[in-house]
Design a protein around this nucleic acid. Sequence first.
RNA 1: GUGGAUGUAGCUCAGUUGGUUAGAGCGCCGGAUUGUGAUUCCGGAGGUCGCCGGUUCAAGCCCGGUCCUCCACCCCA
Length: 460
Amino acid sequence: MANKPSIPKGTRDFSPTEMLRRKYIFSTIERVFQKYGFLPLETPAMENLETLTGKYGEEGDRLIFRIQERGRTFESGVAKAVAAGEGDPKRTSDQVRQQTASEGLRYDLTVPFARYVVQNQNEITFPFKRYQIQPVWRADKPQKGRYREFYQCDADVIGSTSLISEVELVQLFDDVFTALGLHVVVKINDRKVLSGIAEVSGQPEKVVDIVTAIDKLDKIGREKVEEEMRTKGVSDEAIKGIAPLFELKGTWSEQRPQLEKWLSASPTALHGLKDLAFTFDAVGPMKSAILEFDPTLARGLDYYTGAIFEVKAAEGTMPGSICGGGRYDDLTGIFGLKNMSGVGISFGADRIYDVLLETNKFPAELGGSTKLLFANFGAAEAMHCLKLLRQVREAGIAAELYPDHVKMAKQFKYADDKGIAYVAIIGENELKQGIVTVKDMKTGEQKAVKQEELIATIQA
RNA sequence: GUGGAUGUAGCUCAGUUGGUUAGAGCGCCGGAUUGUGAUUCCGGAGGUCGCCGGUUCAAGCCCGGUCCUCCACCCCA
């Protein structure tokens, strides 16, 4: 025990308390997913490297964890390459990294899902609605709220272009956050509107640069956004053409006519606005979420082609989004299956955890903890408790018997630390009289009841 | 990947211009006539000061390296 053991950077242990809370989030999300007709799917932690590479851009490729093959160490690979006359050490190590790994850890849940759909296309009934709650790994530099291992909770509909899916996903957001008791803002935009803005500005080919710049509007402000566009080669004229975007005010119904007027020259944009209008109309009243049109919402992901979603907490100080999603027309195309439109959303469980903790929204009593502890007064009493314990558990009450005959203070402290609601005391006296003394750990009150009344007392 | 900050007991942190046996609060363990936790009182244990090397008579403190955590950028959940 020279050095303390530790875990890899960017990974975490989850204590029992944390796990109960995490499971609460996961099971809430899962229950709503199922209510909307999504079916569970799991894919392996590792994929063939070729499945993963080239799907997340150049930056993304670097962040994929590669799995070292047996007998082909990185060092031996480099030595071999150098011996073979490879000069540039940086290029060499990149190449060797490719050569010594043929598998990698999954980077997200969407690409493995696309792979699964293509692989099983003949068995799947479309539209296919699946949900998936699993960890993903990124070889990133960790920061607060950014880990190298974290969970994603995805739900996607693939094989339908109907906007009904968009409507349902917005309602699903509302249901999940209503169940979690959190007020949120669901922001929505449409990639077609963004393309239209680029068209109207006169530089449609710069759509990606324009979009990633305006995505940062609320973070860096208008001037910096315009500066970034200029750096990326967007003309002053085009920037002027985008100006009306910054003047937009009001709610969706107020913004819509302004947008239609401004973008009237772009059929693409008008199509997007029509789709958005459908979603706004069809969603109907919401319970705890506010649906908001946000023309600056872009989410940077190249594969989104239609609706774009993002959810932010309306309470607490979490600055980033807690959910994201959107429609992608050709996700499976990269694996050879064309014309498969899909729309999906992802819940950021780790960030939702932080928000619920900060705003004190976790239920005080999360299932899983013991309700009743039998104090241990010695061999004879313990044997008696064992019998009662069976009955209590049969009644569905989580209960346990303190395993050792130690002093009461220690046993009560155990109950206190573990958040156990009641302690049943059966000592010599209670045993003789056929009663049990029940102490309510919260109020400190205790009363003697007949053994037959124990279960009713706990349940009351 | 670039730039910056931090790292002292289980936790949150003190630690004066380098100078004897490194401190506090909380927590933990034990006790206050042995059938009662969370409150009170008393006592105790626990740190090769992240790790490696250097400067010095002397390093928690200065210098270099390294790892972790954090912050900004990039990117994202």
